[in-house]
Amino acid sequence: MTWEAVREIITMGLVLLSSLMCFAAGVGLIRFPDVLSRLHAATKPQILGLMSIGAAIAVNNPRIGIFALLTAIIIFQGLTAPITAHMVARAAYRSDHLRRDLLIRDELSVSVEQVEQGAAVEDPDGDKR
């Protein structure tokens, strides 16, 4: 059957794309210098990897229930990955796990200083460093 062959090729292409994305995430974890850039390498290619592998499953099992479950998984991952990234980035910035010499501009530090000067009298709720 020609459709079988086409399906095999599509599946293989999607699987290769996904494995490439996982590989890129791993290499990025090793190569990038600080926590914030590692976050970029880690969280992002995974979404594309998961999307492509989900498409591969849907191509191989074209049923409505499978499609719905895959959509749920991808939406779930797409909603939670930014939250994880944001929480980790915030903790990293506050506990100084970043290399400031690599930043060409840091507008957050300016506003942190402003807040500290402005609200020095009030009781800081522990959010400012």
Binding site: S19, C22, L29, L39, I53, I57, N60
Partner: peptide, 20 residues
């Protein structure tokens, strides 16, 4: 971060096995 990447890699491998 690294353990997160590891888990997603496992997810991708499981899904690959299903697709194949």
């Amino acid at each position: 971060i690294a353990s997160d990447v590891f888990v997603v890699t496992i997810m991708c491998v499981l899904a690959t096995e299903m697709a194949l």
